[in-house]
Design a protein around this nucleic acid. Structure first.
Lengths: 248, 248
DNA sequence: CACATACTTTGACACATATCAATTACCGGA
DNA sequence: TCCGGTAATTGATATGTGTCAAAGTATGTG
C-alpha cells in the first residue's frame, strides 16, 4: 500500500509518479529537510470531522491512507460533497485562516500534517514550490468544473458511471488490478457518500447501481467490491468524450 | 463605468477596491511598467467565442467591459456554464497551454490581454504576484464549490434567487444603484445563459422568475431590468445562510 | 451463536423539472 | 411608426428523481 506523506509530495522530480498534481520541489533539498522536521501525523476514525467549516485550520496536510471529503451543507441539512481526497491528495489553503467547508473522514484516515505558518514561509521563499502549489490548485479547479458539468447536466446513470470511472482511474494509478480492459476495485464510499458526491439521493444511487449491474456494465462482489468487465463501455455511459478513456 | 484593465489588476495595494480577488503586486512598480508595455486590447461581439476548448491559449486577460463565460459541453450538446467573468475578472492559466473549456462572449466584450510568455516570466520572478495569483485561484475554487452546492442541492427557485443575489452583489460593487435594502440592476444574461449557469432549462428559469415576481420578491422593467425591493428577503429564498446577506 | 446496528435494496407513489408546442413581448432597423 | 425576428412567457404533458416505507443483508459484539 502506497502511503504518501507530505514530504513525499515535495520530493525530488521523478520521485512522485503517483499523482501528476503532487507538489514537486525538484532539487530543493534543504527545504525537504525542513519539511521533514516539521511533519506530524494525525489519525481519524471513519465519520470523524477533521475540521468544521469556519473553524481555524492551522495546518496543511496530505492524505496518507483512507478517504477524506470536503462537504458543504445548507441550513436544512442538504449536503453536497465538493471535494474528495484520496491518498496523496493535498488539503489546505496557504494564506487562508479558516476552512470554508467541513473536512470529514469518510473512512479511517491518516494524514501527514504541517503547521501552516512554517509551511507558508517555505512557500514564500521557494518560488518553485509556490508555482507547484498554483498548478495543484488549478488542477483542483479543473476537477471542480468537471464536477459542475456532472452536477448540472448529467443523468443519474451518467453520474454513477462517471464516479465509478473516476474511482477506477484513480485506483489504477495506485494499486492496479487491471487485466486488459477489465478492472476491479473496492468502493471507498457508502451509498450515502456517493449520493452527496453526485447530488442524488442514496436510493437513486442504489437503483442506478443495480441497473448498471443488470445491464452487465459492472459486477458486484458483496456491496462494495466492483468489477468492471469493460472499462470503455462504462465510460460510454458516463456522457463524457470517450477519448480520455484509458485508465491513465 | 468602471473599466479595469490588467495593469489595474496589478496595481498598487489599495488601488483595487473593486474586487478582493484582484491581483495586487503592491509596490512592484517596475513590473507594473513592464505589464503596461505588454498589454493590448481585444473586442468581441455577443455570442463570439474567444477560445475554443482544447485550443491553444497564448494570453491571459482581464475583462474590461461586458461578460464572458466559461462553458463545458457534452457530446450531445448539453452545456453547463462553469465560470462567469464580469468586469475586472481574470482569465488565464499560467503554466497551461490549452484552454480546458470554451470562453464565450455573453455580451459585447472588451478584454485587456497580455501574451502569456512574458506574463509567466513576470510571475516567476515576482513572488508577490505569484502569491496573489494563488489567492485568486483559491477564490475561484471557492466560488466553484459554492456553485457545486447550488447545482447539486438547490431547487430551481433557490437557484434563481442565488443567481440574482450574486449578480446584485457584484453589481453593487461596481455601479451601485442601492437605496436602503432595495437595489436594481440590468440582467447581463439571457434566460438561456441563466439556464446554462444554473443547470436548468430556459423555460424553468422563466417560470421561476415569474413566480418570484408574483411573490413580490422582484419586479421587472422590460425583460432585463430587475428591481429587488428587499435584498434580504431575496437572500432568504436562496437557501444560503443569511449572514453574508449584506450587498458586500 | 444470537442479536443489535448500520448499510443497502426494492417498492409505491408524489412531485419538480424537462419536453414539446404555441403565443406574446420586446427591440432594432427600415 | 410599423415591421420582422429574436427572446421570453405560458400551457399541457411526460418523465426522472425524490420521498416514504419496508424488507433484506452484512458486520461486529456480547
Amino acid at each position: 500500500m502506497f502511503a504518501p506523506d507530505l514530504t513525499k509530495n515535495f520530493n525530488k522530480c521523478g520521485d512522485c509518479p503517483i499523482r501528476k498534481r503532487a507538489v514537486c520541489a525538484h532539487c530543493e533539498t534543504e527545504e525537504l529537510i525542513l519539511l521533514e522536521e516539521m511533519k506530524y501525523y494525525r489519525s481519524f476514525e471513519a465519520g470523524q470531522t477533521v475540521v468544521w467549516s469556519g473553524d481555524r485550520m492551522d495546518f496543511v496536510a496530505s492524505v496518507v491512507s483512507g478517504i477524506a471529503s470536503l462537504t458543504q451543507t445548507l441550513e436544512d441539512g442538504r449536503t453536497q460533497m465538493v471535494g474528495l481526497l484520496l491518498p496523496s491528495d493535498f488539503v489546505g489553503r496557504p494564506g487562508r485562516d479558516s476552512a470554508p467547508y467541513d473536512v470529514v473522514a469518510t473512512t479511517d484516515l491518516v494524514m501527514c500534517c504541517f503547521r501552516k505558518k512554517p509551511f507558508e514561509e517555505l512557500v514564500s521563499t521557494t518560488p518553485r514550490v509556490a508555482q507547484r502549489l498554483l498548478q495543484m490548485t488549478l488542477d483542483e479547479l479543473d476537477a471542480a468544473r468537471e464536477w459542475m458539468l456532472l452536477l448540472g447536466r448529467k443523468t443519474a446513470r451518467e453520474k454513477i458511471a462517471s464516479l465509478l470511472a473516476i474511482i477506477a482511474r484513480r485506483n489504477s494509478m495506485l494499486a492496479t488490478q487491471t487485466v486488459g480492459d477489465s478492472m476491479s476495485f473496492d468502493l471507498p464510499l457508502t451509498r450515502e457518500a456517493m449520493s452527496d458526491y453526485l447530488g442524488l439521493t442514496l436510493e437513486t444511487v442504489s437503483r442506478q447501481i443495480s441497473a448498471l449491474k443488470k445491464d452487465g456494465l459492472i459486477e458486484l462482489q458483496g456491496k462494495r467490491h466492483i468489477i468492471v468487465p469493460d472499462f470503455q463501455k462504462l465510460v460510454l455511459e458516463s456522457g463524457d468524450d470517450a477519448d480520455g478513456g484509458l485508465p491513465i
